[in-house]
Design a protein around this nucleic acid. Structure first.
Lengths: 214, 214
DNA sequence: ACAACAGTGTAATCTGCGTTACGGTTACTT
DNA sequence: AAGTAACCGTAACGCAGATTACACTGTTGT
């Protein structure tokens, strides 16, 4: 009876879509809570509603469900990382803003948990792990590289390789927290922590990058 | 009949000590190969020789065995990290040497695997994970801080907080590789990779630290 | 209304593994 | 040599969870 039915729209909820979304959400919760091995398919169904049979029909099995879940999650976490950075913002301010946005994204509990989970399962799901690690940072890094290029042309910095420089900046900003959060599941940086870490990163970066292009 | 019997020496092999060592070695292999959950006690015994009963008698259970294994491993990996750095080495050379030593240690396949394994189990074994993360870097970092202080007093750098500076240096050097190796289990940096990464870190660090102490 | 189909619930199957029990064997002590 | 404690093998227990089978009930399209 429905007369809309958009032809190529898979993302919007048919009845199958609704079920699928519910399964993915529950799977995310349970996997992140218990880890891959200790997550139970039955509990996922319990939380999602629906039935075990449908779960298996839609995802094939535990492995398939996990992959689908991570895929969806990476998409969600990556998407909002595009930073609105008017190209001509002064460099210090621009770096600070892009750095904070980046760290805020990475510091959300869910993102951290996916991070940890993937690290643990890297050898079981090599493709997924590689993809996750690459897809996330890639987009924002190239955005930063472009921004650095713009600033270099404006004469604010002297940089030789923009991609390398962007990489260094992010590493500098995230290293401390990324490593710490991996091993202390209960540590969650506050906004102030983030601001401070980024500030320190920006200062070292601005002082140091030019040493790479003499 | 043995007339040696050193009084306080627990580390040297009694019969129990031999068994224990064999168990720990096998446990390390199996845990690192399959991950905590998929490691089977039976297989550990198969590799170590001995019997399941003895394993349980000595370690109490899977959890106890795991903790003992990680503990022993951390000890082994931490111990050789003390860097012989004659205090008055010029700073560029000193940083390069300490950085390379540090990275070489962290890049050994076993160290990486322990790293990944711990990250995955951080919420199951919070104490272990925290301890592991701290014990390793702690010693070498304070050695670096002392060295930096010496160099600062010699007028080679201007640094305000030596611990923070040391932290930044290590983060700068290790970030790239640590994160990459977490998600690409098959990636193993060569000596040349390490040298280059450290070199880059040293340059950015030396150029940038002083920006923290204006 | 009626066939085709996707979704539901529940139970049964199958497997693997941590853990314990136990009777026999070995190695050290005195 | 006798005694004691640790060690060995193996089998059994109990459990938990992935996966499958099956009989049912709604929904969809014509």
């Amino acid at each position: 009876m429905t007369d809309q039915d958009p032809p190529g729209a898979e993302q919007d909820e048919g009845r199958a879509g609704l079920r699928r979304a519910a399964f993915l959400k529950a799977a995310r919760e349970v996997f992140l809570e218990h880890g891959y091995d200790n997550a139970s398919m039955a509990e996922i169904v319990r939380r999602a509603g629906g039935s075990l049979s449908t779960l298996y029909a839609q995802f094939g099995g535990k492995k398939g469900l996990f992959e689908a879940m991570v895929d969806a999650r990476v998409e969600e976490l990556t998407e909002p990382m595009v930073v609105e950075l008017s190209a001509h913002t002064p460099i210090r301010e621009g770096l600070q803003r892009i750095g904070e946005r980046f760290m805020a994204r990475l510091s959300e509990p869910d993102a951290l948990n996916v991070f940890r989970l993937m690290a643990g399962q890297a050898r079981t799901f090599p493709d997924l792990a590689g993809g996750y690690a690459r897809r996330g940072p890639e987009r924002i890094r190239s955005a930063l590289a472009a921004y650095l290029k713009d600033r270099a042309e404006a004469g604010e910095v002297r940089i030789e390789n923009f991609d390398v420089a962007a990489q260094i900046f992010f590493d500098l900003v995230r290293a401390r927290m990324a490593l710490r959060t991996l091993f202390e599941p209960d540590y969650h940086p506050s906004d102030a922590d983030i601001r401070e870490a980024v500030d320190r990163g920006v200062r070292v970066f601005l002082g140091g990058v030019e040493a790479l292009a003499p």
